[in-house]
Design a binder for these strands. Structure first.
Lengths: 337, 337
DNA sequence: CTGTTAGCGCCTTCAC
DNA sequence: GTGAAGGCGCTAACAG
């Protein structure tokens, strides 16, 4: 069923050009000790046969590939895409090649511990090192240059890059409390995500620091969509004593809150203050522009790549855990009570 | 300088487990003819050593990898990212793995004919076939399953997926002309992009079909950014006889036009009709919502993957050139004169 | 300058 | 059920 691969090998080229394979190899790698005449002839044959050398075979021999691997569970994910952009910037800056690996099986398949499998596939020779985005386990090979982006909290064995989700949420709470808000509703996200857990932690910590109680009726958990944001907000607004501010743990949810507020005839920010998280592009253009927390996810990819390359080059890592700070972006969706 | 690779090989595992490499190989590939006891022990050792088999070595032996390659010049590009999403959907549907390859050298380096080089790296054994996005040359190996997405027009030798940029622009023109517009300004994009060329062609063809002249002062070329959209629009609006409608060849530019119009105190659509191209998410939420052309770029990735897999499985391709149709999305940014 | 030789790590017969 | 041997395509010595 599977079609035979490109049949033309370095051997075929050598035969057709009437030279040995090593000569062809030299031409391939632009070694300078090849006669111009031979060089041209070999190149001609290569072009004629449509030959191209195999990374697999080559990398197996040369122990170094100048390529790094990036492993993601799912390509179609805003977070992963941002990380990829950062990695892309970094490989351009540092002159590496990039091999991104993802599997069509995992998504539908067994579920857990995909990362071990994926590393298995790239490891050893294809890439000089690997970046894993949002791994779910710490059970990863350590014998190989490896950096994780957004790992689970428990995992501190591997060099990692994380973002300050908790601190970001904390800054939101400080901001709102400074504005005089005391009843602040929180709309959380999927609890399988580290980010969701940490943001909620920031919410609660912010309350406690200000000596405010954590009130269960002011906490709703959605799934980071506009729809659940809307629904959770409705719950809040129907309370006998509704919150004066709502902190949605991501911007999409916050948009849902805006929708619910408009429906209830509430003006923003006069009647209700709203804060989001993520700083997605739309937040700057909504009415009113949304106060939110910026994350610099692509920066995580950039830094992870930088760390990995240091690891590959056997430089000692001054810092095994790198935190990319978040920043509160104050726009017009909040007002003092 | 480059650090030694993961030292642990199948041989090490075999030694540690007190079995032969072939037994380990059997365990790795889940062959059933291994004693349960042996199997468990080998698995234990594998876990203990953090061993993982090398894709490179494996694929070299087995001639088929169940993986497809995707080659892009640049990761950080909206078009490429959409294509990737479609490819991702397809590999999940069809159960393939995906290897995306991009190089940090090309961007800063020589410039041309990157695709041949890239194909060279993946070809042969690592992947069963390759998709190339926006190649610049037709000089690609044909001996290998290969599909191009958005190739230059001249290239018809390879199986390809394209989108109907020209037809999309044409539909815009028909729409505007039907609304009674006669002076229609066009803001084009970077002329190194096929899409930009085709969209402009659609603009001119639309004019000609309606028996309208192509007027140079009604054509401005920007670079697909909001900024140049704004500047080009200013030019138009300062004309003695300004256009009644402006067709921006992408949505970003169209936003710039909206900005310029507001500045000039023009209402949209009462005083000026505006159409974009691309249907990026924001277009639905602007004020007024923007009429534009939807593209389904991810669909290009999906179809390309489907074609490639057919190629890999040696099925005959009923259709070597696949066109993904565009669709005019009518919102509220246009009005009859 | 070019050919010969030996593996890289793994999988696949083929024996036992 | 398991081990030994051969070779996938290529590069890196070492000879000429």
């Amino acid at each position: 069923m599977a079609r035979k691969k490109s049949a033309v090998t370095i051997f075929d080229v050598a035969a057709a050009a009437g030279v040995s394979v090593s000569t062809v190899s030299r031409v391939l790698n632009n070694k300078d000790d090849v006669a111009a005449e031979t060089y041209d002839e070999v190149q001609r044959v290569i072009a004629e046969l449509g030959y191209a050398s195999s990374l697999a075979a080559r990398s197996m021999r040369s122990r170094t590939t100048n390529a790094i691997g990036l492993i993601v569970a799912k390509l179609n994910d805003p977070f992963n895409i941002e990380v990829m952009k950062g990695v892309d910037r970094a490989i351009i800056d540092f002159g590496y090649d990039l091999l991104i690996y993802t599997s069509g099986h995992h998504a539908t398949g067994s579920g857990t511990a995909w990362e071990r499998d994926y590393v298995a596939r790239l490891n050893g020779s294809l890439t000089d090192g690997i970046i894993i985005v949002t791994p779910t386990t710490a059970n990863l090979p350590l014998a190989f240059p490896l950096v994780t982006v957004d790992p689970p909290v428990e995992d501190s064995s591997l060099p990692s890059v994380i973002t300050t989700n908790r601190e970001g949420a904390l800054s939101v709470m400080e901001y709102l409390i400074n504005l005089g808000h005391r009843r602040i509703g929180f709309i959380g996200g999927r609890s399988d995500l580290q980010s969701a857990i940490r943001r909620r932690q920031g919410y609660e910590d912010g309350l406690q620091r200000a000596g405010l109680p954590v009130i269960p009726e002011l906490i709703q958990i959605g799934d980071y969509t506009r729809k659940t944001g809307y629904e959770c907000a409705k719950q809040f607004l129907n309370l006998p004593d509704p919150p004066t501010a709502i902190f949605a743990a991501n911007d999409e949810s916050a948009f849902g809150v805006v929708e619910a507020a408009s429906e209830s005839g509430l003006r923003i920010p006069e009647d209700l203050s709203i804060v989001g998280f993520d700083n997605i592009p739309q937040t700057a253009h909504t009415n009113p522009p949304l106060t939110t927390v910026a994350q610099f996810i692509d920066q995580m990819g950039y830094v992870a790549t930088k760390m990995l390359i240091e690891l590959i080059q056997n430089k000692s890592l001054e810092n095994r855990l790198h935190k990319i700070p978040t920043r509160l972006i104050v726009r017009d969706s909040c007002r003092a009570v």
